[in-house]
């Protein structure tokens, strides 16, 4: 994946570039807003990671300009401002996701990988299939190897989100944001308990587990 990182903190940028490289992504770096904007509009990237406060040009204005030009490259906004209204302004400016500093790299990586997928057409798919497990978004039916599985509405939405991002790590915060639509940190293991219930419904009694726990990061569904 080709990523453009616009971040003025050299140390943070160096760490991110190295970590993204280890995760198999090519990362270009711009240290100020103007350069970042020039690079973003001049080259084709899969994901842009944009810091909100930048020298020479504000991160949000870069995103706004790109969107105004019809550039739909997914954007992850990084910011030290984490209040509800800050997030709202960030997303309103055209950002696709918003991550508050300080963050765990696993969280950033998971979000970047899920974002990149958005540009692919599977977004509009009406059904998903992973290793014999199928989910129909219209009839709201879930089956594994032809056997129907009964899920609670919330469990259905959890599975739907996981399957939409099959093969990618989704973090607990991402689940809380996308399934419950809340943006705070789940303090205890609330999400884990929901996941273990879901797992018992879709994996119990089958030889190959589909729902995997990724240590220190989150969950992933894959065959």
């Amino acid at each position: 994946m080709k990523i453009l990182l616009i971040e003025d903190d050299r140390e943070a940028a160096a760490y991110l570039i190295q970590a993204l490289d280890e995760a198999g992504h090519v990362t270009h770096h711009a240290a100020d807003g103007e350069t970042g904007y020039a690079m973003a509009s001049g080259m084709d990237y899969d994901v842009l990671i944009v810091d909100r406060m930048l020298p020479r040009r504000d991160g949000l204005s870069i995103v706004e300009s790109l969107r105004a030009e019809g550039d739909k490259t997914p954007v992850l906004i990084l910011s030290a401002l984490g209040e509800v209204d800050d997030r709202v302004t960030g997303l309103r400016a055209g950002g696709d996701d918003y991550l508050t500093k300080p963050y765990a790299f696993t969280e950033l990586l998971a979000r970047v990988e899920v974002l990149a997928r958005r540009s692919s057409p599977s977004e509009a798919a009406t059904s998903y299939e992973v290793g014999g497990l199928s989910l129909d978004r219209l009839s709201r039916k879930v089956e594994r190897d032809g056997e129907p599985i009964l899920l609670q509405p919330r469990e259905f939405r959890l599975l739907e989100y996981l399957m939409k991002n099959a093969g990618k790590v989704v973090t607990r915060t991402m689940l809380l944001e996308n399934v419950w639509d809340y943006h705070f940190d789940p303090q205890t293991n609330v999400i884990d308990v929901h996941m273990s219930r879901l797992r018992s419904k879709i994996d119990k009694g089958y030889a190959t587990p589909l729902l995997h726990t990724v240590r220190g990061a989150g969950y992933m569904i894959r065959d």
């Binding site: 919330r154 419950w180 809340y182 205890t188 293991n189 609330v190 308990v193 929901h194 219930r197």
Partner: peptide, 9 residues
């Protein structure tokens, strides 16, 4: 929502 979120825990 929140009551449901904490139900399983």
């Amino acid at each position: 929502d929140v009551a449901e979120l904490y139900g399983p825990v």
